[in-house]
Amino acid sequence: MRKIALALALSAVPLPLFAQDAPDVSLTRIDCGRATQPIALGGFGDTGASDGMTRDLVVSCYLIRHGDDIMLWDTGIDPATSGDPDGGFSMGAALVDQLAQIGVTPADVDYVGISHYHYDHVGQAREFPQATLVIGSADWAVIEGGSPWVNRDLFVPWLDGGSPVRQAGGDLDLFGDGTVKLLAMPGHTGGHHALLVRLADAGPVMLTGDTAHYTSNYEHDRVPTFNDDRADSLASLDRFKAMAAAYGATVVIQHEPDDVSKLPAVPEAAH
């Protein structure tokens, strides 16, 4: 069944991938957190393969320029929780301060794309209250519903109706030209998404969100115990890998230190 579903998913992906006259697109990595100590990995796999293992993980955010439009992908941890042992991550400069290095102010950001609602991906979203929030519809329903797993204060600009929310029920071609596309990868959460960014020189880049957290879990299809749905998680891993192979994409696992270094950090950019 997984193979059938995968074939159907791939057949639905339109080619060519992007319009030839698309605006210039660039992609910059922003460091948004680092583990305060090696993280115990037992919960990152439900088969026991990771029991007793520890390793360092990072939190990464991304700035995408699409012509005159600016999008952030994930917003890292809340600086107020930096160094908190319960959160497990610390950070140096806040996201707003790092953007200032390249002349980007909060008011310049048009879109805040969120892979999913977990704390280490949404911590600085409210710093961009005028932006359109782009998020999976199932995840937005969890946020609106007042889940104890979500800090609603981080989403006040959108919950109070003052700023727009663009919900993605499935894949979403944000600009309509194939260059920046949210990819529905449910499992970790119900509305979880990855991101495809098509660069003219560097080629396609696929950002995992939390489709996988580090390389061995990605390679061996290991599913964390805290994922919402195991079957969906495995189907999403299948789809993500098949798309990456079909597009010849550079895969960036957002919590994997070796992977995030594939992309230049502020103030540099990949084009």
Rank of each mutant, 00 (worst) to 15 (best):
V165W: 00
A184E: 01
E144S: 09
D160Y: 10
G145W: 13
D153K: 10
P148T: 01
S147D: 13
G170D: 15
I143F: 09
G162R: 15
S163D: 01
Q167E: 15
F155M: 07
G178C: 04
T179C: 14
D173W: 14
V156L: 14
G146V: 12
G169D: 14
A168H: 04
I143Y: 03
S147T: 06
E144N: 10
G170Y: 02
G145E: 08
D153N: 15
P157T: 07
G145M: 01
L172N: 09
P148V: 08
Q167H: 01
W149H: 13
D153A: 15
W158P: 08
V165M: 03
G145Q: 10
D160C: 01
K181V: 15
F155Q: 11
G169K: 02
D171Y: 07
G161I: 07
L182S: 13
L172I: 08
A184T: 03
V165R: 02
D173F: 12
D153R: 12
V165D: 00
F155D: 09
D173P: 14
W158I: 10
N151Y: 05
D153G: 12
F175N: 13
S163A: 15
T179I: 01
F155G: 12
V150F: 12
Q167I: 00
P157Q: 08
G161P: 03
D153L: 09
G162P: 00
P148M: 01
D173H: 12
R166Q: 15
V156G: 07
G178Y: 11
R166P: 00
G146C: 13
D160R: 08
G161C: 02
I143K: 07
G146T: 12
G145C: 05
L174Y: 14
E144Q: 15
V156S: 08
G162A: 12
D171W: 14
